[in-house]
Nucleic acid binder design. Sequence first.
DNA 1: CAGTCATGTGTACGATCGTACACAACGGGC
DNA 2: GCCCGTTGTGTACGATCGTACACATGACTG
Lengths: 221, 221
Amino acid sequence: MATRRFDPERRDRIIGAALDVIAAEGVAGASHRKIASHAGVPLGSMSYHFIGMDELLAEAFTRFSTSVSDRFDERLGRAEGIDAARQAVVDLIHEDLLDSQRDLVLTHELYTLAARKPAFRAITHDWMARSRRALGLHFDPDTCRMLDALIEGLSIHAALDAEPSNTEPSSGSEPHSRARTAAAVARITTPGTAALDHTAPDHIAPDDPAASDHTREATHE
Amino acid sequence: MATRRFDPERRDRIIGAALDVIAAEGVAGASHRKIASHAGVPLGSMSYHFIGMDELLAEAFTRFSTSVSDRFDERLGRAEGIDAARQAVVDLIHEDLLDSQRDLVLTHELYTLAARKPAFRAITHDWMARSRRALGLHFDPDTCRMLDALIEGLSIHAALDAEPSNTEPSSGSEPHSRARTAAAVARITTPGTAALDHTAPDHIAPDDPAASDHTREATHE
DNA sequence: CAGTCATGTGTACGATCGTACACAACGGGC
DNA sequence: GCCCGTTGTGTACGATCGTACACATGACTG
């Protein structure tokens, strides 16, 4: 029962190549041939190792979501105290989630699959469950859900709100700054005593340079 | 300058058919032939009315995002007072965004395109700008950004967190209930005592009420 | 009423796709 | 050392794709 010419790395390399190709050209542009070529394996290996593209995609995205989740766990595991946890969340958004175009693309490719096919929704379901478990080290269950959703929304909006020409936002007054993220995280992790009270929100300093192009209406109070 | 045999509906019908096909089979599965067949036009009409698939996709998703934005505007425009606005947001999430599998799928297809191609990011950018403008009728600009992101995250998580087998969550104790949504909206629209400091370049708003100790790394930008 | 040209269509071509399947290569059993 | 079964590969097939382009069609001009 020795190794024969079995190559255990082969399968993994195909999965890795699949993620690379998907990141570069999307699920739509990912073909057996391109992935095989990128992985340096013959075309026949594709059908040999994977029944079909769906199996390959499922394994690839499982690996991807696991790796992102690992970083998530690590950051939150290291945080001690609720403030450190909040800061970890901010760091996570701005360093782990927003810095990598590759991760952004892969995440959306996965979501698109999950929106249509239940098999992939299992992957997103597990991913979100793991995220909430990590947040659960520091926050109560309801807050975890809210915060997890907020993280998602902030990441997506920061990524997809960018001006098309401006691929690399680096200005200090960028609309999706760490300060805004931190403020949002602070709000969502602060249980309101009166959830729907009638108190008008505290006034925000009106002259935000980044908001100068807004025709800012006064809040109805 | 009469009509000849010009059919102005033709182009629109193709766009509508494109959205139908994309909703059913994804951008990946949408071909000129399928869309033409679904629209009841000959294949040649595709190349005649649209330079390529990208132009068709751009117009289709522009129409889609506009229609979703219209409903968004309508709900928030009708709301009077901040509580009604908050309620409108909750209704919006649970009735407009979560009820339609079609909209969910199309949204993610668009996001996936936008994550890779700047041309589509223009569409998401405009969409988000419109959403924030609608929210701006009731909330201050910073809250608008946070709330807009929260809406996004709550919608996505409610949709993609569903158990794969359970396609139609309708139980009263579902994890993503209206009550949880309302609570999250209340939190994010309730500024803490710590206002976002707009004068500082990009630092964390310093005082959170629950914060006892600030072990914060300097933000690198 | 005939000519002309913008408007719209049918078809064919080359490329690419997933997959099936015959077959090569090689380790272990006898 | 020969044989056999597992392991892996090369190739060919049918389907589908986007697009180009010759051609049909009908409205307007004179």
